[in-house]
């Protein structure tokens, strides 16, 4: 293989190609969805589990299962659940009249990878939230019970702000996860299809570089990815941390 120095042409090509932009948008949407949903769901579960602390042990173990499963296996489980011939969820969704088809429909495919990624991530978040909740002194919640009658209001004014450090930390963790660690899930479940609409930037680096043999473009993408991640990290710590109380 001969090589030739082309200055920034690879970068120009990458940035001007529609497929890279599509992948970037998908990555952003996907990461946001995964982080938001997995945090919301696990917070809900953790609050419930915290109310019945005695049940927390079995809850914990149950939800830890997801954590112990490797991404490709999670992806495989997902593929099986969504298999058009025998997947339970595929059949269920279609029998409910959704005309669900993740092989041809980009939104449905996004739904599938998001669902698997969220399911996989909820377990980790749950553990952190539960220990965060248990770290809130009992007397503080009790004092709040005397000060505020509405349990929902107490949650938003006391519990949630006190969990802010945990939530912030998990947001970083989950975004990173959605960015980098969902490779296995995507590779096993959708392989980026249909038409690259579920390929994250990381997955695209792999597809273009190893399957498409476009080493130059793929390398340029990696560099861009690195820059984006650095910016994102700085942004997270600079701006969001300020809103984190105490």
């Amino acid at each position: 293989m001969s090589s030739q120095f082309v200055w920034f042409r690879n970068f120009k090509d990458v940035l001007s190609s529609g497929s890279w932009l599509q992948s970037a948008i998908f990555t952003a949407v996907f990461s946001f969805l995964v982080a938001f949903l997995s945090i919301a769901i696990s917070l809900f579960l953790a609050v419930r589990a915290d109310e019945v602390v005695r049940g927390a042990k079995s809850y914990k173990t149950l939800l830890m299962w997801g954590y112990a499963i490797a991404p490709p296996v999670a992806g495989l489980l997902g593929t099986m659940l969504f298999n058009p011939l025998m997947g339970d969820l595929y059949i269920l969704l279609n029998s409910l009249g959704f005309e669900f088809n993740h092989i041809e429909n980009a939104n449905d495919a996004t739904f599938v990878v998001t669902l698997i990624a969220v399911w996989k991530q909820v377990s980790v978040n749950f553990i952190f939230f539960l220990s965060g909740l248990q770290g809130i002194p009992k007397s503080v919640t009790e004092a709040a019970t005397l000060d505020c009658k509405s349990a929902e209001r107490r949650f938003w004014t006391i519990t949630f702000p006190l969990l802010a450090p945990t939530t912030f930390f998990l947001m970083v963790i989950n975004l990173t996860y959605a960015f980098f660690e969902t490779f296995g899930i995507i590779d096993v479940s959708t392989k980026g299809s249909p038409g690259g609409s579920t390929a994250t930037l990381v997955y695209k680096v792999y597809v273009d570089g190893f399957l498409g043999a476009d080493l130059g473009g793929s390398s340029a993408q990696s560099v861009l990815l690195m820059i984006m991640v650095s910016v994102l990290t700085v942004f997270q710590f600079r701006f969001i941390e300020r809103k984190v109380h105490y």
Partner: peptide, 10 residues
């Protein structure tokens, strides 16, 4: 009034 004050830290 609680022994450990139980103030809202945030």
């Amino acid at each position: 009034v609680f022994q450990n004050y139980a103030l809202y830290p945030h």
